[in-house]
Amino acid sequence: MAIDQLLQAIPLDQLLIQTVNGIVAGMILALVASGLTLIFGIMDVVNFAHGELFMLGAYVGVIVLTATGNFWLALVVATLVIALLGAGIHVIALRPLLGRDPLTTILATFGISLVLQNYALWQFGPVARKIQEPFSGYFTLFYLDYPWYRLVIALLSAAIIGALWLFLKFGTYGIWIRATTQDRVMAQAMGIPVPQVLTAVFAIGAGMAAASGVLFGPLVGVNHAMGVDWVLKAFIVVVVGGMGNLGGSIAASIFISLLESYASIWVSPAQAVIFSFVVLILTLLFRPTGLFVPTPK
């Protein structure tokens, strides 16, 4: 009897809708976080400016979209432009820090994030811009008209992450990157141009951030502070999933997004964030190196 009432109290349809929402949000988060974890795992750089690259990517998307009207072109151009910007940032600000304490890279990228965020505010103003979604079909999910676009985002994110994984696993340059991760000095000795590889990795990570910015743009407005929330969430994901662990951060992204979606059935979305904080604290307590990495003792 009591179990029956408990089952009645759980809104099954809402749970299903939130499951879909959570997976979609989780895939975008995974795209942001995998760029972050790639940069960290390979270069020992904590990229504080990642959220700003995400935001600038969305802005470049807005500009190209208003100029050409083609969403897919905007996606590609934004990715390339921000990847170039990332390469520039790496050459100017991060290459001089090679070989110094990794903590100095946090300081440098924090400075970069301040500059980029205020630049965006100065250039584009405080009013949020809108990216028009490329198509506006709906399908019926219980009482909701659920936009197809959201599912497409999730699939595209998965495809980009999959492509990255294949590239790292089988591509020649991917093998260079992995060799650089394992042993920088040895890789250099084998003739791999390590500084250029690091720049390329930073550019790839930046491009992925920009792509997720454009993809996510239609769901919320584009404004100068949109990166901050994402980078904080991505940091949580990266710590929970294990720093530098691609698979772990994808799993953690989906886990945390699902948790926040379910939580937002009962509390406001602003407070739902606290649930992911709790996950983080529990992870730190019991598995300080992340859920998916064995704890070294």
């Binding site: 946090i106 949580i236 710590v239 407070q271 904080f277 983080l280 730190l284 300080p288």
Partner: peptide
């Protein structure tokens, strides 16, 4: 419990917890 970068990120996230509250 954490060192270096992990310590920095953890303290950052803790301060955000209090911010949200």
């Amino acid at each position: 419990r954490l060192r270096d970068i992990y310590f920095a990120i953890t303290t950052l996230i803790f301060s955000q917890i209090f911010y949200v509250i």
